[in-house]
């Protein structure tokens, strides 16, 4: 029961994610810093995705409620953020996704966004899952760093019970002791047992949560390795946050990918995805019993 979800309301190019469909890229800056910068990043991504013929969904957040420190950039806020996302959507005809950390923001967010994202830390928060489900938008559910891949099923069941079965499940690393994430590729096929399409978040997966005292660090040199491994394992979508100047990024400077590398990485990802698709058509879903 491999499900395919369709992302994109009226006015944008619809993107299908799931079995048999080409790899989808979900990306953008971690946070909306300002309108000009958001447009700059979106324009660069569009150019790359057009060149590589990859369907994409633009992602950026208006409120970063999970910052380690109060002094960190919290976001431009829901009003300005949704306004900018709406303009991006209109200008580039691209579906947009953003996360929300408070159940009361869901319906307003869904008025603009084609897809709603559940932050990993909140992946089992019933009120958030209910609010997202009730918007009837596709839901990008990130598996918490603390959660085993088989337990994401509980959150999936909550969403289904609230009447929504358009779900994309994302792996973004798993806590390994303190301030460290590891990536367990086994989680991709395990989460796929739910039947829903699977996404791999390559930039958050290399995060070292709050490893810098009051801010998270990361080892972005491992992004290409993990992308290749995840895509070859059969994910349906790839998520990466990009920035034109990572060190100056207002959010997640330790993990965002420098956009100058995006084309190289997506080109490889597309290639590996095609190979995986070819062999899954020959061998079936499983290569071994």
């Amino acid at each position: 029961m491999n499900k395919i979800i369709s992302v994109g309301l009226k006015g944008v190019k619809k993107v299908k994610i799931g079995s048999g469909n080409p790899l989808v890229f979900i990306g953008g800056p971690c946070a909306i810093e300002n309108e000009k910068h958001t447009f700059k990043i979106a324009k660069s991504i569009k150019k790359i995705c057009d060149q590589l013929d990859i369907k994409w969904i633009f992602k950026a957040c208006y409120d970063k409620d999970c910052r380690s420190s109060l002094s960190s950039f919290h976001g431009v806020g829901i009003d300005e953020g949704l306004n900018i996302l709406s303009k991006i959507r209109e200008e580039f005809k691209v579906p947009v996704v953003t996360d929300f950390s408070d159940a009361s923001w869901a319906s307003r967010t869904a008025e603009v966004c084609d897809m709603l994202q559940i932050p990993a830390y909140l992946c089992r928060q019933t009120s958030i899952l209910r609010a997202a489900a009730e918007t009837k938008r596709p839901i990008h559910l990130k598996k918490g760093q603390f959660m085993s891949p088989w337990n994401i099923k509980n959150s999936v069941k909550k969403i289904e019970n609230f009447g929504n079965n358009q779900i994309l499940l994302t792996e973004r690393g798993t806590f390994f002791g303190y301030n460290m994430l590891v990536n367990d590729i086994r989680s991709l096929p395990i989460m796929a047992e739910t039947g829903y399409p699977i996404c791999y978040d390559a930039t958050h997966s290399i995060q070292m949560p709050t490893s810098m005292g009051n801010i998270s660090g990361g080892q972005r040199e491992f992004i290409p390795y993990l992308v290749r491994a995840a895509v070859a394992s059969g994910v349906n979508a790839l998520f990466m946050e990009v920035h034109d100047n990572p060190q100056k990024a207002l959010s997640d400077p330790g993990t965002v990918l420098n956009i100058k590398y995006l084309k190289k990485i997506l080109e490889q990802a597309k290639f590996f995805h095609k190979v995986r698709l070819k062999f899954s058509k020959i061998n079936g879903k499983f290569d071994v019993e």
Binding site: S148, W150, N151, K153, N154, I190
Partner: peptide, 8 residues
Amino acid sequence: LSAFFADD
């Protein structure tokens, strides 16, 4: 066991 318990 935790994975087994979560099976359908």
